[in-house]
Amino acid sequence: MKPRLHVLWNETYCKRCLLCVEVCPVQVLSLERNEITEKEGCIRCYQCERYCPDIAIEVMDEKGKE
């Protein structure tokens, strides 16, 4: 599980289907060098986690890590 700014991304589970990138309403996620990266500006809507079919992305709690 690789921590990003607001999300945890699981490198081994992820198949790079890019659903999380496309469902994000503020477009903070992107695929760079075969890794999901995150910009500033997450609004914690949980859409990426809800739509991910591979349980590869999780939004962290307000306090920090899960």
Binding site: T12, K15, E49, Y51, P53, D54, A56, V59, E66
Partner: peptide, 27 residues
């Protein structure tokens, strides 16, 4: 968000065998 459903999945077998973006993972 409640993530206790992971007890019902065999996580040691993950990542699962389906294609990227397949709807069966969501089901």
């Amino acid at each position: 968000m409640d993530r206790s459903y992971k007890d019902l999945l065999k996580l040691r077998r993950f990542p699962h065998t389906w294609c990227p973006g397949c709807g069966i993972g969501a089901v």
